[in-house]
Structure formats: C-alpha cells, structure tokens
Design a protein around this nucleic acid. Structure first.
Length: 179
DNA sequence: CCGCCGATCTTT
DNA sequence: AAGATCGGCGGG
C-alpha cells in the first residue's frame, strides 16, 4: 500500500502550495467495489487506468471536483484520493476561491474543498504531476511521511465500507471529519 | 454540537 | 436512482 507515502508530500499549482495530510486508496489488483474502475474502462476512468503519476479528476454530486493521483501500473486502475491538505503558500489566492472557509485549516479540508482551493477542475484531467505539463506538480521537500499514520475506514462510501484504506497525519488540523 | 437536506451532474 | 461532497439551517 503506497497511499500513505503520499502523506506530507506537496501538491503545487502555480503559486499555491499545500501539504497532503489525508488520503484514501481506491482500486488496484484486488477487486474494490468502491472504486470507479471496478466495472472496467469507461470514458471517465481512462486516466485512472493510465500510467501512474497522473491526475484523475472526477465531478462529485454535480457540484465538486475531486482529485486523485494515479498510483497503479497502466491498466491496473488504482488511485489515491487527495482528501485534505494543509496550506503552505498562495494562501491569499486560496481564500479568494474558498470564501466560506473560516480559518486556514478549512481551506483544503475535504476533497472538494482541496480542488477548489488549488484551482483544480476537469481541465486538469490526466495532468502529468512529474513533468507538471499543466502547471500541477507533486513535490517532495524532504519531509518524511508519518511513521504512524492514523488508519481508518474510507469516508462516504457504502460498498466495501469496512476496508481500512484511509490514512491521515495525526494531530493535523486540516484533516476532514470524522477525525 | 448534531443531523437533515438541497444543489446538480455523471454513471448505472 | 445513487453517488469517493459541502454548507446552511433548524433543533437540542
């Protein structure tokens, strides 16, 4: 399971920088009924079945964009949902796009809010996070992933609800509910 | 603090 | 008809 290795990495879009503090794993070699790739290749899931290191973006509940990092080999259909991040830079710009956020810890709390604060939408579908071909990049500033991340059930799903594939940094105020 | 509910689009 | 969500509103 490499999802927790994304914790404490930086997600960068232009001036905006945030530290990933909460993730969930989806799909992979063992069947995962909760994953968008469970029923095979569809127009929506082409990026998730693509090579690792790219962005899989989907539209949630007709309202929010949500972003995943593709983590499986090509054809595998595995990705890590970015559920929350702590703001590092570009905070004024984030606030402009997140008018309902009260404090800084609210800016990127939750997968929809994270995309809103970073300005990620469907135009970034399939972006290469290594070459930053669309201005979005995954960066390692030397901060190690936590040695003991908190491990829980995934949030907001009904299928495969018992699987413990959510990982977050303990004592981190930007983590979404439930803590 | 908690729970309900609407918004609004994609996929089944 | 349900869904990898969010924020506003009403009640305790």
């Amino acid at each position: 399971m490499l999802a927790p290795r994304l914790l404490n990495k930086l997600i960068v879009h232009g001036e905006r920088v945030a530290r990933i503090v909460e993730v969930e794993a989806y799909g992979g070699r063992e069947p995962d009924p909760a994953a968008h790739t469970f029923r095979g290749l569809t127009p929506r899931t082409t990026a998730m079945f693509g090579p690792p290191g790219h962005l899989y973006v989907y539209f949630s509940y007709g309202v929010h964009w949500c972003a995943n990092v593709v983590c499986g080999d090509e054809g595998e259909g595995a990705a890590v949902l970015l559920r929350a991040a702590a703001p590092v830079a570009g905070i004024d710009e984030m606030r402009m796009d997140r008018p309902t956020a009260r404090g800084e810890a609210d800016l990127l709390r939750g997968p929809g809010n994270l995309c809103r604060a970073l300005g990620i939408t469907k135009e970034h579908y399939g972006a290469d996070l290594v070459t930053a071909d669309m201005g979005i990049e995954l960066r390692d500033d030397g901060t190690s992933p936590p040695e003991n991340p908190v491990i829980t059930k995934r949030v907001g799903i009904t299928k495969e609800a018992a699987r413990q594939w959510r990982f977050y940094v303990s004592n981190e105020p930007s983590v979404s509910r439930p803590r």
